[in-house]
Design a binder for these strands. Structure first.
Length: 261
DNA sequence: ATGGTGGTCCTACCA
């Protein structure tokens, strides 16, 4: 099974890029974040014409929103209502009867890394705490996959400069600590880093604001694929599609692709 | 210390 995760930053604007990605990679399952479309406006016919008869979407007007597109049938589960906001940041399905697949869009958290001064940062920290509590209560021997834009680059070599980003939201110690606590609570493993260990730099996002992104390469790895132990050994390959950042009118994120037996 | 770009939807807000 080939699984792709991509923060598409508007599904309707980038339908052609999704088509290009699907033609190039032939995925069986595509998890999207920031689709920015409410369910009543979701381009269902276009998506199904790409070869995905099974579609889960949780959208809202203008912001956020996640979708799971699949060639395989699945059973949709009710997503959690994180932080008591119905803001379309989580979708979950069960594939093949026993593989739980979570698709997350964790809050970005604003610019100021202080929960007292910035409610968006407080929201992000609370979201991570609630995820930790939720996954701590889950069966660790289950087959599960978590993908998405987690909006945290946890490792030193997940950012272009560890030292220069310590006070930048997405790489501050408090976020890394909470993300890692959630990862441990759910026994989530990071197969992307099994295939490409540190100190090799790995990024999945480059800001729109750095014009010379290829030359300066000031990226961050915000997009992740995590697996529970029984799934990790089944992950056969992993790659990050850096070249997508050079496509015409790109998302600021590129896709992450894994092949799972 | 600052401003840089791009998304939605129509006025700012979010990334």
């Amino acid at each position: 099974m080939r699984l792709v995760t991509w923060n598409i930053n508007s599904l309707r604007l980038r339908m052609d890029l999704l088509r290009r990605l699907v033609q190039a990679e032939q995925p069986d399952v595509v998890c999207l974040q920031e689709i920015k479309v409410q369910d009543s406006e979701f381009p269902m016919e276009d998506v199904q014409a790409l070869g995905f008869p099974h579609v889960l979407r949780h959208g809202m007007k203008g912001y956020n929103g996640v979708a799971i597109l699949s060639k395989l049938p699945f059973n949709a589960r009710d997503p959690q209502d994180w932080c008591k906001k119905a803001d379309s940041r989580h979708g979950v399905v069960v594939l093949g009867g026993d593989v739980e697949l979570h698709n997350f869009y964790i809050p970005a958290g604003g610019d100021i890394p202080d929960p007292e001064k910035n409610v968006k940062f407080a929201h992000k920290l609370q979201f991570l705490d609630e995820m930790k509590d939720w996954f701590a209560g889950q069966n660790k021997t289950r087959n599960a996959i978590m993908v998405g834009d987690l909006n945290v680059a946890p490792l030193e070599h997940d950012v272009w400069s560890h030292k220069q980003l310590l006070k930048i939201v997405s790489h501050t110690p408090i976020e890394v600590e909470k993300l890692t606590a959630m990862q441990l609570a759910g026994q989530w493993q990071d197969p992307i880093r099994h295939f490409t260990p540190e100190p090799t730099k790995l990024y999945s996002w480059w800001s729109y604001r750095s014009p010379d992104w290829q030359k300066n390469d000031r990226g961050r790895r915000l997009d992740h694929v995590w697996t529970t132990p029984p799934m990790t050994s089944r992950v056969k390959s992993a790659k990050i599609l850096r070249e997508m950042r050079s496509w015409t009118q790109p998302s600021d994120h590129v896709a992450v692709v894994v092949d799972i037996d």
